[in-house]
C-alpha cells in the first residue's frame, strides 16, 4: 500500500471511531442492568466503555415484550414507505429532470417550498384531517404522510440531471421511449442516489414518534420508537433497557447501509460508460 492509502485508512478509521464512540458507550451501557451504568459515569471511568461483566439481559427482556412486535411494525411501515415513496419520487424527479414542459421551474420551487414546511407545525391539523378521512389507527394513516417527501424528489432530480444528455438522446434514437429510458438508462446509473433517497424515506418512518401517537395507533400497530418511550413508567425509568432499545433502533439502519454498500461499488464500475 502506498503511504497516502495507509494515511487514508488511518484517517477513516479514526473518524469512524470518534463518531461511533458515543454509540459504543450506549452499547456498553446497555449491557448493564437497570440504571447501574451511572456507576462508571461520575467520575468517568474507562469501564464505562468496556462491556466486561455485562450481560444481554436487557436485550432478552426487550425482545420478549411489546418491543419486538413494534419492531416488526416499524419494518413493515418503513419498508412499504420506501417502496411506494421511491416510486412516487422517481417519477416526479424524472419529470423534473428530463422532461421539457412549461412550468417545470415552478413545480420544482413548489417541491422545495413544501419541503420547508415544519411537520411539527402542521401535524395536529393534519391528524384532524386524517380522522375525518377515517384514516386514524390504520397502516395507511401511518404511511401516507411520509410519502410526500420533497427531499427524496429533490435528491433524485439532482442526480438525474447528471445523466449526460447524449445518453438520453441515444436512448431515444434506439426507440426506448421515456419509460424505457428511465428504467434501462437512468435508474441503473442512479443507484447511490436511490439508496440515499431510500434511506431518507426509511429513517423518516423509523424515527416516527409524534405522528403515530397523534393518529392514535392501537397497541397492535405500535411502532418501535413509541414502544421504546413506553419503557419508562411514570416514576421509574430503566435506562439500561432504553439504551438497549436505542442501540437496536440505531443498529438496524446501519446494518441496512452495510448491506447496500455493494451497490455503491457497483455503480462505480458502471460509471465507465458515462463520459
Amino acid at each position: 500500500m502506498k503511504v497516502s492509502r495507509v494515511a487514508s485508512v488511518f484517517a477513516a478509521a479514526l473518524a469512524a471511531g470518534l463518531i461511533f464512540l458515543p454509540l459504543w458507550w450506549v452499547f456498553a451501557s446497555s449491557l448493564r442492568p437497570g440504571n447501574s451504568f451511572v456507576e462508571n459515569l461520575t467520575p468517568l471511568s474507562w469501564r464505562a466503555f468496556l462491556p466486561v461483566g455485562g450481560s444481554f439481559a436487557n436485550y432478552e427482556v426487550l425482545l420478549d415484550g411489546d418491543f419486538a412486535r413494534a419492531l416488526l411494525n416499524s419494518f413493515l411501515v418503513a419498508g412499504v414507505t420506501v417502496v411506494l415513496g421511491l416510486a412516487v419520487a422517481v417519477l416526479a424527479a424524472y419529470a423534473l429532470a428530463v422532461l421539457n414542459f412549461p412550468g417545470r421551474g415552478y413545480v420544482f420551487v413548489f417541491v422545495i417550498l413544501v419541503s420547508m414546511v415544519p411537520f411539527d407545525a402542521i401535524a395536529i391539523p393534519l391528524s384532524g384531517l386524517f380522522s375525518t378521512w377515517r384514516l386514524s389507527d390504520s397502516y395507511a394513516g401511518l404511511i401516507l404522510p411520509a410519502l410526500a417527501n420533497g427531499f427524496a424528489i429533490f435528491v433524485l432530480r439532482q442526480f438525474f440531471l447528471g445523466v449526460p444528455q447524449e445518453l438520453l438522446d441515444a436512448a431515444e434514437v434506439d426507440g426506448l421511449g421515456r419509460f424505457g429510458t428511465l428504467l434501462r438508462i437512468v435508474l441503473p446509473l442512479s443507484k447511490p442516489a436511490l439508496i440515499g433517497a431510500g434511506l431518507m424515506l426509511f429513517l423518516s418512518q423509523w424515527q416516527a414518534y409524534l405522528w403515530p401517537l397523534l393518529i392514535g395507533t392501537s397497541p397492535g400497530k405500535q411502532l418501535a420508537p413509541i414502544a421504546l418511550a413506553n419503557l419508562s413508567n411514570l416514576y421509574s425509568v430503566d435506562l439500561g433497557q432504553i439504551l438497549a432499545g436505542s442501540f437496536v433502533l440505531s443498529a438496524v439502519p446501519m446494518v441496512l447501509l452495510l448491506f447496500f454498500q455493494r451497490q455503491y461499488t457497483e455503480s462505480l464500475s458502471t460509471s465507465g460508460m458515462r463520459g
Binding site: 469512524a16 463518531i19 461511533f20 450506549v26 418511550a229 432504553i242 440505531s250 446501519m254 447501509l257 452495510l258
Partner: peptide, 20 residues
Amino acid sequence: PAVGLWRSLIFVPAAVPGSV
C-alpha cells in the same frame, strides 16, 4: 479496506432516536 464499515459507522448517529 473495509470502507463500507467506516461509512456505516459514521452514518449511525443519523439513526439514533432524538431522546437518546
